[in-house]
Nucleic acid binder design. Sequence first.
DNA 1: ATATGTGCAAATCTTTTGCAAATTC
DNA 2: GAATTTGCAAAAGATTTGCACATAT
Lengths: 165, 165
Amino acid sequence: MVMGVVVAADSHLGRAKNDTAITRPSLMKELAARRVRITTQRRLLVGIIQGSPRHLDAATLLELARKQDPGIDRATVYRTLALLKDRGLIDELDLMHIEGEKHFYEAKTNRDHCHMACFRCGAIVEYASSSFERLKKEMVKQSGFQIRVVRLEAGGFCQRCQKAS
Amino acid sequence: MVMGVVVAADSHLGRAKNDTAITRPSLMKELAARRVRITTQRRLLVGIIQGSPRHLDAATLLELARKQDPGIDRATVYRTLALLKDRGLIDELDLMHIEGEKHFYEAKTNRDHCHMACFRCGAIVEYASSSFERLKKEMVKQSGFQIRVVRLEAGGFCQRCQKAS
DNA sequence: ATATGTGCAAATCTTTTGCAAATTC
DNA sequence: GAATTTGCAAAAGATTTGCACATAT
């Protein structure tokens, strides 16, 4: 058994459950620390992102936000996402374009992790390991490139779908 | 020095030059092996992709193709890219959306490699190492997920741009 | 008072699709 | 002649933008 591995399969677009090694620092605190103005709508959006057990796309985030503030606009959602991404507080994922070209978002975690997307059922399996951390360090060392964001995604078939065929 | 490392910085959207460990099997042969009909236009498009030293996006590919066949249509380009992707002959990259939402393509190599995109100058640094191969194996082993495609991308600043600031 | 955030509607950018004509087997 | 590929034009989907108004410091 490899140390530090965090794997968890979940249903459709789910997120790791037994994920004890990964923590998600408070977005609100991070925003405050960066002296970003926290408006009512931003608080709402950030709360939804932080609390969501799933990877959200902009349309879903808007929909969820509208349940609490029907007046909130799509543009505000996109502008807030851009802000959070710019400050490095959320990660933008493509999830191998398993659902078209839209992006998915998740609060930045203390530790980078990979996403594996099942082409058949859409399940997302998350995975973190020290090997990933080592690889990143190696990349930086060997290339001299200064890494700000990393994204490791894979597409294929989850365990369940492999059996089902 | 780590073994098997292939690193090369290049100018804007360039590709590794001293890339001896990485080979690109002939797309034409692969197509033939899969009994895919090879039309004039497909041959043209595939030739451009295979021969290009850069990561191409659909619009650029269309533009290059039109120099030789002005009649070729955008839809054909997209349809051919979809075909090649489906057969696993090309890889689709996002390059951290450094130039908008479009995709970039490259002929599949014998060995997976990462792409690091410079947010400042747009340079693409490619990197392959045995650590990446090990990580992939570990992911499969630990998660039971069957990987068909992997993409490891990073965004940040290349060596030159770090110095320039 | 000044800077910043928001809603609205329209625009933009990339990719996909329906259908008739052309091409290939 | 049947099946596949292509061009054309229009549609679709996701994201961005200009501008006037509202809100916060």
